[in-house]
């Protein structure tokens, strides 16, 4: 299976949500052999609801694994990993790439219908955290923007009334970049729910609080400019220069 075939498996043209799948990681990753179609993948117990879109915001490979689990419950996983694939990276995407490849056979075997509701997959470590961003490292940190998702109007036109966020955060509020996405939907009228994967409890209603710069007309520009300014090439904070490297 080559990169294009793998991308087509995760973003089949017939799905109404495939347009939003991010190709960057697929385009550069080393493609591995998929697992056999009947290989075990994790299961989670989620009721399929055609009116609910899911956002999976979990670390690395776990996000893909939960996406595959949701696929078995009738959801269409939509990978939104907008990260470059290169060695010595600040954000490890190896696990994500491995599971995208491993899950391909299983996913294609499910024959999900084109109208299957979406489960958007994000890496909660997208802003870094695993590797100390030292000089010399490849900065592939990333953030999400509202433009990375369908609009409220598109969601509504396709029967989506609710959004369920799967996460592993200690508090219910989403990360700031995702908050920009969710708050727009919330203000437009979508119901939001959150579910912490580690807690055995039904999804709880969620009210997203206003993040900084919300509603700013040039949020994307400001975010990108600010992030560029801070990191000179990447997202997040300044990559520190140890004093020994000066001169």
């Amino acid at each position: 299976m080559n990169r294009l075939e793998l991308f087509k498996t995760w973003a089949p043209p017939q799905s109404k949500w495939s347009r939003w799948a991010k190709p960057a990681l697929f385009a550069e990753m080393n493609v591995l052999q998929p697992l056999p179609q009947d290989a075990p993948v994790p299961r989670i117990d989620v009721a399929n609801d055609a009116g609910t879109a899911v956002i999976v915001d979990l670390p690395g490979a776990q996000s893909v694994q939960v996406g595959l689990a949701l696929a078995q419950d009738g959801y269409r996983p939509v990978p939104l990993f907008n990260s470059a694939y290169q060695g010595w990276a600040v954000v490890s995407v190896e696990g994500i790439a491995q599971w995208l490849a491993r899950g391909a056979n299983m996913l294609s075997g499910l024959s999900l219908p084109p109208e299957a509701p979406p489960a958007f997959l994000l890496d909660s470590k997208r802003k870094g955290g695993e590797v100390l961003p030292m000089p010399g490292k490849f900065d592939n940190r990333w953030v999400v923007f509202p433009q990375d998702f369908p609009s409220y109007n598109y969601l509504m036109a396709n029967g989506i009334r609710r959004v369920l966020l799967f996460h592993d955060r200690s508090n219910a509020q989403p990360d700031c970049d995702l908050a920009h996405v969710l708050l727009r939907w919330q203000e437009a009228g979508l119901e939001l729910y959150e579910s912490r994967l580690s807690i055995d409890a039904p999804p709880a209603p969620m009210r997203v609080k206003k993040p900084s710069n919300f509603g700013t007309l040039w949020y994307r520009v400001l975010a990108m400019a600010g992030l560029r300014r801070n990191s000179a090439g990447g997202f997040g904070d300044v990559v520190p220069e140890p004093s020994s490297s000066h001169g």
Partner: peptide
């Protein structure tokens, strides 16, 4: 030379 984290820019470089 580019902002490596921006896939919009990286695609041009690749």
């Amino acid at each position: 030379v580019h902002a490596t984290a921006f896939t919009d820019d990286r695609q041009v470089m690749v």
